[in-house]
């Protein structure tokens, strides 16, 4: 499926605007997040899960970003969803893409986003006793952590 066909399919199925510069990206509401992932994999042929991360927009809430690629037709697609202020739950993409497993664990570790239906949502980089989620803008780096900090 070429880039134009991908864009047309996304616009007709989800009824949202698909931006094309600098990379083709689509923003959906959080309740259609898993549906978007399944559509991207099965219909659009974006079978390669590149990465998943999040952006902290402070009082506007968190935004989850994932990039999936169609390696056959050289199309890459950026999936976005705004969780809204104060919301820390999001549906998981792990049932669709197995590669999303560790990415979502890292996202939980750094941003504290609870991915529903994730099989094994634990911290992946920091130790289990760590308090807080350090990539949030509200995280205080100067918090004492004796004797190391």
């Amino acid at each position: 499926m070429t880039a134009e066909e991908t864009r047309a399919a996304l616009a007709s199925t989800f009824g949202v605007e698909v931006t094309s510069a600098p990379v083709m990206s689509v923003t959906v509401s959080p309740d259609r997040w898993e549906e978007l992932g399944r559509f991207a994999k099965e219909t659009l042929g974006c079978r390669f899960f590149s990465f998943l991360s999040a952006v902290d927009w402070k009082e506007q809430g968190l935004e989850v970003v994932a990039k999936v690629d169609n390696l056959d037709d050289n199309v890459s697609l950026l999936l976005k969803t705004r969780l809204g202020p104060g919301v820390t739950t999001c549906s998981s993409l792990t049932p669709v893409y197995r590669g999303a497993d560790w990415m979502e664990r890292e996202c939980f570790d750094m941003f504290g986003i609870r991915f529903e239906n994730h099989p094994d949502l634990r911290r992946i980089l920091l130790e289990d006793t760590w308090e807080g989620h350090p990539l949030l803008k509200s995280y205080a780096v100067d918090t004492p952590h004796p004797p190391y900090r």
Partner: peptide, 13 residues
């Protein structure tokens, strides 16, 4: 030094 995960000098350990 001002990151969140680094010991500020090994002489603290």
């Amino acid at each position: 030094r001002h990151g969140y995960h680094v010991v500020k000098g090994v002489d603290r350990v």
